[in-house]
Amino acid sequence: MRNPSKIKEGAVEFSLGDWDGKVMVYSFAKMWIYLEAKGKLLFGRGFKLYGEDRELLFTLCNYIIRDEMNCRKLGIDPDKGLLLSGPVGCGKTSLIKLLRYLVPHRRPYELIPCRNIVFGFNHVGYPTISGYGNSGFYCFDDLGVEPTGRHFGKDCNVMGEILLSRYELFKNHRVMTHATTNLNAEELEDRYGNRVRSRMREMFNLVAFPNHTKDKRKQVVPACNQTK
């Protein structure tokens, strides 16, 4: 079996922890170093992880590596999907893109902006909705702020319908769905209704940035940074 403790990026090899051939013991400090390095490769040299997000990132890392003991302590279920919420610019999309690289030996999820799904529905119609009712592994980005779908004069809450389809997949086949959102629970219920919101509680672990989290896109970041 491939050694899951080593990840190579170009000529540089990163360690995520210790592997004895059977058991992988991850190191959060090493995962932090790798995620920041991978972030710079994906998003530019100005990318950095913020100490203020350390607790949240610890939760996300334990979730993605399926550390059952820490997940129990943190109150999250590794067999449910992830709903990552927080204010605009807090870094939700960047982190959800990065997390999947920690577990290259597992099937990656595809990150899709919700607005793109709605635009597809407006062009193609209901096959767009049924297309997401399959066993695909998806993360829906910016859930709740997409426009209402409209096809041949009929309005449709496209993402609400897709979430209902994904719920059936989750209940019957344990297929997980992830999502990011700027909205809180009440706003999601207003957007999709009580029925969808109730099913989202079953489908997702909610991991939230604090409401006071700053917009990181407005911060000036030096080209080179070091983590503690």
Rank of each mutant, 00 (worst) to 15 (best):
L83N: 04
G160I: 03
H105V: 13
V124L: 08
C156K: 13
D155E: 15
D18T: 13
W32T: 06
L42N: 07
I112S: 00
V145Y: 03
Y101F: 15
T177L: 13
A179K: 00
N62W: 04
N70Q: 13
K8E: 15
G17E: 12
P147W: 01
S85N: 09
R217H: 06
L183D: 09
S5K: 09
L56I: 15
E68I: 14
L164N: 11
G39V: 08
N205K: 02
R45Y: 02
G136A: 07
N70V: 07
N122H: 00
N116L: 14
K73M: 12
V158E: 04
N122F: 03
D155C: 03
F121I: 03
G91T: 01
L206Q: 04
G44I: 00
D190S: 13
D190A: 08
A185T: 08
I65M: 11
A11L: 11
T213N: 06
N205M: 03
C90K: 01
L98V: 10
T93N: 12
R72A: 10
A37P: 03
C61D: 06
K80R: 15
P210C: 10
F152I: 05
P4I: 06
C114W: 05
Q226I: 13
L102W: 04
V103A: 05
K22Q: 14
F137M: 04
V124F: 10
V23K: 15
N225D: 12
E187P: 06
E189Q: 13
V118D: 07
L102A: 08
I65P: 03
L111R: 02
T227K: 02
D155Q: 11
H212A: 10
L102K: 10
K30D: 13
E68M: 09
D18A: 12
R195G: 11
N3K: 03
N157I: 11
S135Q: 12
S94P: 00
L169I: 02
D77K: 01
M203L: 04
I76C: 05
L41V: 14
C139M: 05
R201H: 05
